[in-house]
Design a protein around this nucleic acid. Sequence first.
DNA 1: ACTGGTTCTAGTACTTACTTATAAAACTAG
DNA 2: CTAGTTTTATAAGTAAGTACTAGAACCAGT
Lengths: 184, 184
Amino acid sequence: MARIQKKQRQQQLVEKIKSSPFLTDEELARLLDVSIQTIRLDRLELGIPELRERTKQMAEDAQTKVKSISKGEVVGELIDLELGKSGISIMNITPEMVFERTQVARGHYVFSQANSLALAVIDAPAAVTGVANIKYKTPIRVGEKLVAKAEVVKQRGNKYFVWVKTRNDVQEVFRAKFIMVSLD
Amino acid sequence: MARIQKKQRQQQLVEKIKSSPFLTDEELARLLDVSIQTIRLDRLELGIPELRERTKQMAEDAQTKVKSISKGEVVGELIDLELGKSGISIMNITPEMVFERTQVARGHYVFSQANSLALAVIDAPAAVTGVANIKYKTPIRVGEKLVAKAEVVKQRGNKYFVWVKTRNDVQEVFRAKFIMVSLD
DNA sequence: ACTGGTTCTAGTACTTACTTATAAAACTAG
DNA sequence: CTAGTTTTATAAGTAAGTACTAGAACCAGT
């Protein structure tokens, strides 16, 4: 009986901490109706760190996450660039980028990769997107690696005409024509 | 002299904590070459909470942020929706959405708002973007509030033709035509 | 040169949320 | 009923503080 009790309690402990990670041992003890020492023993056995460590961990994780998002001036990884001519970028479709239900990538991620590549490839200090013509050819799934190739096909005044073609391993999945406008 | 010293030091303190928020008072004292008590006095004056509070705050913020991001199947806030007909969404341009240098919004955020609204408005269980025709009319700056209106103009088989027009307070800033394709 | 006010440093007592260790109590099972 | 497991209790120690008091340094003006 006691053996089951213990397993059950530890299970509950794990769940409680997962659902609300800011509980102290004292609060947990009250919730599970055991002594603080039991909680501490359980934490030790289960390898769950103390409240402060948990909190710190979460804060640190958050920091690195925020950084990697705000770093994203360019969506995707730029692997080749000839300013004013062409460029290539790679992006992996991660689980955050897809619709939960269908596991198909949201269109704007693919667009974002192409758009920021188009922006990177033109030789101008500051520019905005003016016009875009876009075609999605096939649905894109989680785990796929997209390679986008951009080419500057024409330049007239402050307008740059850029074509971007995106492939997965198998075929072309997306293509776009951008007109980028450089600012003064 | 001493008065300037103090102001300067407190300035430095604020910056140090901002850039690496996991410093203890002791470490800060060493870095700024004053006693721990001075650091504590400064923190008190500046209303900066202790390390543990800061850590906790960050962890809590992160929790709610993760939630609100994962909620974001729709970019922008959906404020009106008539399935199969029309929809309206609002999005505020925050500092994370603009280029640091020019303070102009990155095109893909505006696209994302329009694209996810187009997706929301069509009456289909699952769909992807097929084609998009996009025009950015003016640069968009930080702080602006964008109102996007979508309208389903035609439906043929599993293809939906959706027009989206986005305005700020003053004028139309963006317009797009989407062909959305519903999946079986 | 002395005095007064600001700024900085030092020291003590107390707090929270623990850890480590040791021991006793309670339960439970053969 | 006794041995083993599980739980609780007690004590001492830790990190990173708060709150408070008091003294030292400095510097500025008269």
